[in-house]
C-alpha cells in the first residue's frame, strides 16, 4: 500500500488505511515518545494523543516534505504538551546543581547499544532531556525550543550544554564513548565506539 493511497484512505476516514498508517509509523513514533516520557505508559498515552491528532488533522498535510516528518512534528508537539499538561517539568533539576545529580551505574540497563543510548538519554532529568531531544535529535533551534517550552533562549542553550555534559558522562561510564586525553581538546569524539 503506497503512502499516497494511505493518505487518501485516511482523508476518507477509512479504518483500514488508518490502521495501515498506524502500523507503519507507530513503532518509530513510540520510540520518539519514549525518549520524552517518564514511563512506557506515558509514552503510549502520548502516542495515542499524537495519532488521534494525525488522523483528525491529516487534511492539513500539504504534501510538502516528508509525510513521516509531518507526523513526527505532530507527535513531538503532543509530547511537549503532554509534559506541560501534567507538569512533568516540575521534576526539573536546578541548573546550578545539575552536576551533582547522581546516577547509579547499575541503573543503566545492559542492552544493545542503540537502546542503551536511548535509556541513557532517559536517565537525564526531564527538563534536560526535553531540550536535548528537541535540539540534538529532532533538530529544533534554541529559538524554537524557547517558544515551545515557554523559556528563555539562553535557558535552552544552558540546559542543552548541561544535558550534553551529563549524557557524555553517562556514556563514558557505560563505555559507549571513550574519554579523550585532556591535551587533545575536542578530539575524543573521534574515538566513538561503533557497535
Amino acid at each position: 500500500m503506497t503512502e499516497e493511497y494511505i493518505i487518501a484512505g485516511c482523508l476518507h476516514n477509512e479504518p483500514s488505511a488508518q490502521r495501515e498508517l498506524y502500523n507503519r509509523f507507530s513503532p518509530k513514533m513510540l520510540a520518539v515518545c519514549y525518549r520524552f516520557a517518564q514511563s512506557r505508559e506515558d509514552a503510549e498515552d502520548m502516542l495515542q494523543e499524537g495519532f488521534i491528532k494525525v488522523f483528525t488533522q491529516i487534511h492539513t498535510f500539504q504534501n510538502k516534505g516528508a509525510f513521516e516528518g509531518w507526523i513526527r512534528r505532530i507527535v513531538v508537539h503532543t509530547c511537549i504538551n503532554f509534559l506541560k499538561k501534567y507538569k512533568k517539568f516540575n521534576d526539573n533539576v536546578d541548573l546550578d546543581h545539575a552536576d551533582s545529580v547522581f546516577i547509579k551505574e547499575e541503573t543503566i540497563p545492559s542492552i544493545m547499544q542503540a537502546k542503551q543510548v536511548n535509556e541513557c538519554i532517559r536517565l537525564l532529568p526531564v527538563g534536560y532531556r526535553t531540550v536535548l531531544n528537541l535540539y540534538a535529535i529532532e533538530g529544533y533551534s534554541h529559538k524554537e525550543i524557547s517558544v515551545m517550552l515557554d523559556i528563555e533562549e539562553s535557558t535552552s542553550r544552558s540546559q542543552y550544554t548541561r544535558a550534553k555534559s551529563m549524557l557524555e558522562n553517562i556514556l563514558v561510564k557505560k563505555n559507549i564513548l571513550e574519554k579523550p586525553p585532556t591535551h587533545t581538546q575536542f578530539s575524543w569524539l573521534a574515538g566513538v565506539k561503533k557497535s
Partner: peptide
C-alpha cells in the same frame, strides 16, 4: 545521537490502537 536513535523502534500495546479506533 541521531545515528544511535534513528532506527530505534518500539512496538505499542494493541490497546493503544483500539483506543484510537
Amino acid at each position: 545521537l541521531k545515528e544511535q536513535v534513528r532506527n530505534h523502534r518500539m512496538y505499542p500495546n494493541d490497546v493503544v490502537w483500539r483506543d484510537i479506533n
